[in-house]
Amino acid sequence: MANTRVYKMKFSSVYPLYIQKAEKKGRTKEEVDEIIRWLTGYGQEELESQIEKEVDFETFFAEAPRLNPNRELIKGVICGVRVEEIEDPLMREIRYLDKLIDELAKGKAMEKILRS
């Protein structure tokens, strides 16, 4: 499976890139963390623990306490692919996160990003 490289990437190596992308556009690390917590159900301490343990994406999502049921409301294109059409469940979760970070960087209001 071609996606296994992505699944084995350490979440802790991509996390700073999410923050960097957000901060370049005037957003904050706290907003990135809020998005991740909303999507996965991790508390802040649990999120920090996952980062410290250097888990891969596969483990990060497998151990997520409670994937938000509203994540299925996330629609749109990321990397040229419609997220709602991604068949592989783990890749869809990863792309949901990418899409939310993109929306943050594009200046969308947090209420809309979190599908409130």
Rank of each mutant, 00 (worst) to 15 (best):
M1K: 13
M1W: 13
A2H: 14
N3E: 15
R5N: 14
V6C: 10
S12Y: 06
S12C: 06
S13P: 00
S13V: 13
Y15E: 03
Y15I: 07
P16L: 03
Y18S: 02
I19G: 03
I19W: 02
I19D: 03
Q20Y: 14
Q20W: 13
Q20G: 09
A22Y: 02
E23C: 03
K24L: 11
K25Y: 11
R27G: 01
R27K: 08
E30R: 05
E30T: 12
E30M: 09
E30C: 04
E31I: 11
E31N: 06
V32W: 00
D33L: 00
D33M: 03
D33E: 15
E34V: 11
I35K: 00
I36Y: 03
I36E: 00
R37S: 08
R37E: 15
L39Q: 02
L39T: 04
T40W: 02
G41L: 06
Y42W: 07
Y42P: 05
G43H: 11
E45L: 10
E46C: 07
L47S: 05
S49E: 11
S49Q: 11
Q50T: 12
Q50L: 15
I51F: 09
E52H: 12
K53V: 11
V55W: 05
V55Q: 04
V55A: 07
D56E: 09
D56H: 04
A62F: 07
A62N: 15
E63S: 08
E63T: 13
A64H: 01
P65Y: 09
N68M: 08
N68I: 08
N70L: 15
N70A: 15
R71C: 07
E72N: 12
L73F: 06
L73H: 06
K75F: 10
G76Y: 03
V77T: 14
V77E: 14
V77R: 06
C79H: 12
C79N: 15
G80C: 08
G80I: 10
V81S: 12
V81P: 02
R82L: 13
E85Q: 13
I86F: 09
I86H: 07
D88R: 03
P89R: 01
M91L: 15
E93W: 05
R95G: 07
R95D: 12
Y96V: 04
Y96F: 14
K99L: 13
K99Y: 12
K99M: 14
L100M: 14
L100Y: 04
D102M: 12
D102C: 12
E103K: 11
L104S: 03
A105Y: 00
A105R: 05
K106Y: 13
K108V: 15
K108S: 01
A109N: 10
M110G: 04
L114R: 08
L114H: 02
L114G: 05
